[in-house]
Design a protein around this nucleic acid. Structure first.
Lengths: 226, 226
DNA sequence: TGACAGAATGAGCAGAATACTGGTAGTGGA
DNA sequence: TCCACTACCAGTATTCTGCTCATTCTGTCA
C-alpha cells in the first residue's frame, strides 16, 4: 500500500490526517518541519507528501523545492492562508495539488487518491536515476551532480572522476596506483603528488564530508560512510 | 498549443476564462451546456475541458460521465456550491480537478497548466501529444515547435535536433561524443568545435532559458530545469 | 614508554595546459 | 543569393600539475 509523509508542526493536524489516511489503508509517517521532512525523504521514499506551508525551521515551499531536487514524489501543499500568491508559488515549485485549511478530511483524501493514482498510472518519463545518498550528501552519477544538504557542489572534472570512482567503490581500499590508472589512465606518468593534490581539492569541496575520505598510509585512500 | 473546451451557461464566465486562457496561449472553444459539450467532444478532441457543475439541459456531472465513455480528456469541474458532496462526486466521476466559484482566474490557469502538463507527461491511451514544458518554455516534440512565453522560436534543423535530444534527456550529463553521435550520427568526423558552435546558436535562440543548458567542462552539456 | 628519524601525506602556490566561448568566414545546397 | 552548417581562430577562464615546505604518522631504539 502507498506510503504518505505528513509534514505539519501541529500535532492535531498530523493526527487528523493520519487517522483518515490509515483508515483509507495508507501507511503514514510524520515530520514536524521542513528540515525533518527533507531528512526523512533522503532516507526513505514515499508515494506522496502532504505538507503544510507555514512551519517553523523551514517552510513548506522551501522544503518542497529541496525535496524536488532529489525526489519526484508528488506533493500536496496545505495552507492556512488562502492567498493566491501561495497557490501559484506552490504550483510553480512543483507541488501537485493545493488544499486550503481548514480542509475537509474527506476532500483531502479524495485529492490524495487522485494524485497517487496519477503518479502511479504513468508519468515515469523521467529517466531512472543512479543516485547515491549518505546523510546530507547526494551523488547523482547520471547527472554528474553532487549536493550537500541540497546545495550543489561545484567540482572540476578530475574531482568528479576521482570522487565518483571512490564512491562507486565505497568501503574499498583503493591503492594510489589503482586510483591513478582508473582516473588518469594507465599511461599517466606524472608526479606521484598529483593524486594527493586532487584528494586535497576534493576534501575541500566536500566540506564536512571530507571525513568520508580516509587516508590509508602507504596504500591509498578509501571512501567510507560511517 | 493545447485546446480547451469551456462549458458554462454564463456568458460572462466563458468570456473570463477565454480571455485568460488565450492569454496563456491556449485555443478556446465554448459550449453552453452539457448536451452541447458532449456533441462537440464527439466531433473534436481537446486537451482539457473546464466544465461548470450547474447548467441547464444537462448538468456537469452527467456530461462528465457521458464524455468519459468515449474520451479520456482531462476535466476540471467548476462549482458555485462549495459543498463537499459535489467535490467527491466530481472526483469519483473522473474529473481531474475541482475549482470552487468564485475562483481566481490565475489559480484556475495554474490548475489548467498543471492538469495539461500531467496528462501530457503521462501516456494515456488517448492521443499523446509529446510536449515538454518548463515555466514559459514549451517544447512540442511531435510538432517540432518550441515556444517561449507563447512566442514561437525559430530554430534550424540542427538546433532542433540538438535541443530535442537534450530536453528528452533532461537532467542527464551528456558527453560531447554522445551528443555528436546522436545528433550528427556516429560517422561524423568533423571538427570538435562544431558542437560548441551549435550550442552557442541554441543558447542564443533560447534567450533567458539558455541558462538551462549547463556546460560540463571536459565532459559535455546538460539540460536542466531548476 | 618516549623520543627520534625517515617516510608519507597535506597545504599553498604559480606556471602550464586545456577547454570553452564568441566572432568570423568559408562551403555547399535549395 | 540566401541560409544552414562547418571550420577556424583568438581571448579568456578554468583546471591540472609539479614544486616546496609543513605536518603527520610509523617503526625503531634507547
Amino acid at each position: 500500500m502507498s506510503r504518505i509523509l505528513v509534514v505539519d508542526d501541529e500535532f492535531r493536524i498530523r493526527q487528523l490526517i493520519r487517522k483518515y489516511a490509515e483508515f483509507e489503508g495508507y501507511t503514514v509517517e510524520e515530520a514536524v518541519d521542513g528540515m525533518q521532512a527533507i531528512d526523512i525523504c533522503r532516507k526513505e521514499e514515499f508515494d506522496l507528501i502532504i505538507m503544510d506551508v507555514m512551519m517553523p525551521e523551514l517552510d513548506g515551499f522551501s522544503a518542497c523545492r529541496e525535496i524536488r531536487k532529489f525526489r519526484q514524489t508528488p506533493i500536496i501543499m496545505l495552507s492556512a492562508r488562502g492567498e493566491e500568491y501561495d497557490k501559484i508559488h506552490g504550483f510553480e515549485l512543483g507541488s501537485d495539488d493545493y488544499v486550503v485549511k481548514p480542509f475537509s478530511p474527506k476532500e483531502l483524501m479524495m485529492r490524495v487518491s487522485a494524485v497517487i493514482k496519477r503518479s502511479n498510472g504513468s508519468n515515469q518519463t523521467d529517466v531512472k536515476k543512479d543516485i547515491f545518498t549518505y546523510e546530507g550528501l547526494s551523488v547523482d552519477f547520471s547527472a554528474r551532480i553532487v549536493t550537500i544538504d541540497g546545495n550543489r557542489i561545484d567540482m572540476t572534472p578530475k574531482e568528479y572522476e576521482l570522487f565518483f570512482y571512490m564512491v562507486k567503490n565505497k568501503g574499498l581500499a583503493l591503492t594510489r596506483e589503482r586510483l591513478i590508472s582508473e582516473v588518469w589512465g594507465y599511461d599517466f606518468f606524472g608526479d606521484e603528488r598529483t593524486l594527493d593534490t586532487h584528494i586535497k581539492l576534493l576534501r575541500k569541496s566536500l566540506g564536512e564530508y571530507s571525513k568520508c575520505i580516509v587516508t590509508l598510509r602507504g596504500v591509498g585512500y578509501r571512501f567510507e560512510t560511517l
